[in-house]
Amino acid sequence: MGDSTQAAGRGDDATSTSHPYRPGYELVAEQLLNYIAQENLRPGDRLPTEQGLAQILGATRNVTREAVKVLAAIGRLNVRRGAGIFVAASVSGLLDDELSHFRPTSMEDVHMLLDYRKVIESETARRAASLATPIEVRAIRESAETTLTAATENDVDTFAKADAAFHDSVGAASHNVFLRSSVAGVRRLAAQSDVLLFHGDLPGSLEVAARQHLAVAEAVAAGAADLAERLMVEHIATTQSQFEKKIRDRLFNPGGDKIL
């Protein structure tokens, strides 16, 4: 663990020579999540001090502090003044504490997350097509239309909000609070990858995603349960392929987009 993070930690905000396109704090944040998993730390467990973590990870204290701030911002750590640094509670009370070990920069973990989304959200789409009220159908359609408008204007922030509203609206129309909660929880985990890898940017084509939203919305409006289910699976499969390509470009292709 130490070699890669030692390189990351040199020069505070400098990037490592082995990963010239990723900032040091980002690499240390990734290593810190690996440390939590390797030590089998659970929500509520206390971590060493910043200085102690810096020594364990082979990084400078400044870079370690920035890594802790980022992980606290995405809900993975809980920093209590005068008390210390703790593993934060699960993103949802309904999700197992094992998800405290989710690695948002790991291809394997992201693949499992998106596979789970296919299972959960395909069922919410199927149920929404059978159970949605006219008001719920309108909410789904309006949020889908907003994603398309935002996509054509390349408005990432508006798209992200409308995207969340679309998936939540489909979850609400399933008329199952556990399904809706699962959708919300899994999307919060996905947002951790957005922050750590993409700095709030979104992987893939916004317009493709928006048009898929509209197709799902129309299937729900038509009461076509099988079609809504299939379209949602296709939508998340597209997201998965885009996401995985983005991770490969960011992590393994020095000629790809750089994280500055």
Rank of each mutant, 00 (worst) to 15 (best):
A37R: 11
E39G: 00
D45L: 07
P48L: 14
T49A: 08
T49D: 09
Q51M: 15
Q51S: 14
Q55N: 13
I56E: 10
I56R: 04
R61K: 07
N62I: 09
N62P: 10
R65W: 07
R65D: 12
A67D: 11
A73L: 03
G75M: 05
R76L: 11
L77Y: 01
N78Q: 05
N78T: 05
N78H: 05
V79F: 06
R80I: 15
G82I: 12
G82A: 09
A83P: 08
G84E: 09
I85L: 06
F86A: 14
A89M: 05
A89N: 04
S90E: 09
V91H: 04
S92L: 13
L94M: 15
L94I: 15
E98W: 13
L99D: 05
S100H: 00
R103N: 13
R103P: 02
T105K: 00
M107W: 04
M107S: 12
M107T: 15
D109I: 08
D109F: 06
V110P: 02
M112I: 02
L114C: 09
D115W: 08
D115R: 14
Y116L: 06
R117P: 08
V119E: 07
I120H: 00
E121S: 03
T124D: 09
A125L: 11
A125S: 14
A125I: 12
A125D: 11
A125V: 14
R126H: 06
A128C: 07
A129Y: 04
S130F: 00
L131V: 04
T133Q: 03
T133S: 14
T133A: 11
E136Q: 10
V137I: 15
R138F: 03
R141T: 12
S143R: 05
A144V: 02
E145P: 02
T146R: 09
L148K: 13
T149H: 12
A151K: 12
E153M: 12
N154L: 12
D155K: 12
D155G: 12
D157L: 06
F159A: 02
A160W: 11
A162C: 13
A162E: 13
A164Y: 03
A165M: 04
A165C: 08
F166Y: 07
A173M: 04
S174A: 15
H175A: 06
